[in-house]
Computed example of a mutant assay.
Amino acid sequence: MKRAMRCLIFAINDWGSTLDAEAIDCISAEEALQLGSAAVEDDPVEVWCGSRRLARFEPDRRVRPFPRLRERLIKVERRIREGEQHIAQQERVIAELKRGERDLAIAFAVLDTVIETQKAHLQARDLLLAELARRSA
């Protein structure tokens, strides 16, 4: 019986940032590649097993770009709303820890990470809006 290997499928945006990651258990690299190629939707997908990138799959660029940009904008807007919720939740965690006079270093580090991620989403939205405006003109 072959041992399963842990691989990762990453959805990557046009700026090289990871949008989503999914861990998969595969019997072989070929199976990981099949799952990775099937996962391609609007964004490029990379398949990694350990520290080795097996492949990168690109979406079909023949799809009209205007609807694709709108779909990406919808996804980014959703991530921005989720980010706002994560920031608010982490601020509540920090307030709770303060009341308990507990160490806040890790909680603030998490908050900083969430805020930096939110900034990246806001930047992605600005780039998408600029591209939509450029193509509409």
Results as ranks from 00 to 15, higher is better:
A107N: 09
A23N: 15
A95N: 07
L104G: 12
I74G: 06
L111D: 03
V76M: 04
C26Q: 09
R78W: 08
R6I: 08
R53P: 04
L129W: 04
S37A: 07
C26F: 07
E31G: 02
V110E: 11
A29Y: 04
H121G: 02
R6G: 00
R79S: 12
D14Y: 08
G16R: 11
E46S: 10
R68S: 06
A88W: 13
M5Y: 00
A88F: 12
K75V: 10
D126E: 14
E31S: 02
L132E: 07
P59Y: 11
A11D: 09
D25F: 11
F108P: 01
L69M: 15
E58P: 00
A23C: 14
D14N: 11
T117E: 05
E84F: 11
R64H: 13
V63A: 13
L73T: 08
D25V: 06
A29E: 07
Q89P: 00
P59R: 13
R64Y: 10
A120W: 07
A29T: 06
Q123I: 10
R3D: 06
I27Q: 13
R70P: 03
I24M: 02
L97D: 13
E58L: 04
V40L: 09
A107I: 03
G50S: 05
V114P: 02
L54Y: 06
R3P: 04
E96R: 15
L73E: 11
A55N: 14
E91M: 02
K119G: 06
R102M: 14
K98F: 12
F108E: 14
R64I: 07
A11N: 00
E91K: 05
A95E: 12
K119W: 12
S28M: 01
L97C: 07
Q34P: 00
L128Y: 04
D60H: 11
T18D: 06
S136V: 01
